[in-house]
Structures are given as C-alpha cells and as structure tokens.
C-alpha cells in the first residue's frame, strides 16, 4: 500500500482488482484487529444509506477472487485481514517505530537504503477516503521523525553517505521543516563539508523568505555559522 495498491502472490502482482475490492482489502489491511461489518460499511461508503452501504460491502466481498478472498476473514459480524499476509505499510511502521524509540535496537534492515525508500513513500497517495487521509497524516509525521532519527544514527555510525540519503528524504518530504534541514546540515558538517552545509542553509533560507517572508530560527543560524575545528 506504499506508493500504490498492489496485491502480490508469490512475487507476482495480481491484475488490477476492482475499486471496491481494493478499498475493502486496504481498509482491513490497515487494521490489526477485527472490524464490525457495520463499521466497515460505514467507513467505506460514508455517503450511502446503511442498507446501500451493506449491499456494497457484500458486493465487494463477493467480487473477491479465489486468491484475494483468503485475505479476508469474514464472520457473521466481523471482518479482519488474514494474519499470514504481509502488509508493506505495517512493516514500514515497524521500522519507523524502532527508529524513533531510543530504547529500541534497530535491525540491520532498518538502517538500509530500502528502509529509506519505504519511509519516503506515502500511504495510498491519491486516495481521498477519510480513513486513508487520517492514516496517511499520521504516517507522514511518523516517517519524518523516523527519517531524521535514521540520519542521526547513520551519522553516529560514520555512514555519512547513507545518512545524507536519509536526511535528504526527510527534507524532500517536508521542505519547510526545520529539524529536517538541521539534520541534513549536521550530516554535511560531520563530513567536514561546511560549504555544503551553508548551501543547504541558504537554500532553506531562500524558501522561507519566498514562501513565508521569515528567517530561519536563531538555532539553525547558530548551527551553520558556529566556527569549527577539523
């Protein structure tokens, strides 16, 4: 569900599912517990009457093919997503939570380029259902913090090229976020590239002036202008 909706079976992407089937699977995949049919119908078809929403839900379930119907665990009252099916978004959330938790030990994969890619990707972009927008807003915040934390960990480990990759991903995700810019500047400074750090600072300063008519904080000015001994 990161970037786009796709259902994979044994490394092979299934042909495009109907819109209703995609939304049903995505809705259930985002939840780690059973959801009542009433709640699912109401969330997926918020503008429909309850009877029409139930009808649409039954239709979406019946349209699932042999493979995808195994993904939905349906009881008379509840629906849930099969536990043995991997969801990329949940995996990426796990990476992010481990990175932002100072007491958690990140796994090797959490510090990889693939992790940066996962943390750089929106959840179901161009889906405007309320339940997606809310989840995506939460994901946006979590992944920004995770990318900054990842860049800091990689910097501490001396993996500066990878740290720049992570910090740039944070900056690209939210160009006006000062902590993201500060993270990128710190990596350049750790490399001894003060001119690169200054270039990042001036670029950010220009964006702030043009878009908002304000200056960077004193803290960021101090960070980039502090005299350094190499």
């Amino acid at each position: 569900m990161l970037g786009t909706f796709q259902f994979w079976v044994a490394n092979e992407a299934l042909p495009k599912l109907s819109g209703g089937s995609q939304r049903l699977l995505a809705f259930l995949a985002l939840r780690d517990r059973a959801v009542t049919r009433v709640a699912a119908a109401g969330a997926l078809w918020p503008d429909a009457t309850q009877s029409h929403a139930f009808s649409s839900l039954r239709s979406a379930i019946s349209r699932l093919d042999e493979v995808t119907q195994d993904a939905v665990v349906a009881t008379r009252l509840d629906l849930s997503f099969a536990e043995d099916i991997a969801v990329d978004f949940r995996a990426a959330q796990g990476i992010a939570h481990r990175l932002v938790d100072l007491n958690a030990a990140p796994r090797a994969f959490d510090l990889s380029a693939a992790a940066v890619t996962a943390l750089s990707t929106d959840l179901l972009p161009d889906w405007y259902d309320d339940w997606v927008l809310i989840e995506n807003a939460d994901w946006h915040q979590l992944r920004l913090h995770a990318l900054e934390a990842l860049a800091a960990r990689l910097t501490d480990d001396g993996r500066l090229g990878e740290a720049i990759h992570a910090a740039l991903a944070a900056v690209n995700t939210e160009p006006l976020r000062e902590t993201a810019q500060a993270t990128l500047i710190r990596v350049h400074l750790a490399e001894g590239n003060q001119s690169e750090a200054m270039r990042v600072y001036e670029n950010y300063r220009g964006q702030l002036r043009t878009q908002l008519g304000i200056e960077p904080t004193q803290g960021l000015q101090d960070l980039v202008r502090a005299p350094r001994l190499w």
């Binding site: 006006l176 976020r177 000062e178 908002l212 304000i214 960077p216 904080t217 803290g219």
Partner: peptide, 18 residues
C-alpha cells in the same frame, strides 16, 4: 471538494505556525 490543513509549530521561529 477537499481541503486538508496540516499544521505544526516551528519552535524558535518569529512566526512559529506552519
């Protein structure tokens, strides 16, 4: 129509609301 407002604070800024 759809309008999404995402707001956050940049502490230390002369205009902290974004």
């Amino acid at each position: 129509g759809l309008l999404i407002i995402r707001a956050w604070m940049e502490h230390g800024s002369s205009a902290p609301l974004r």
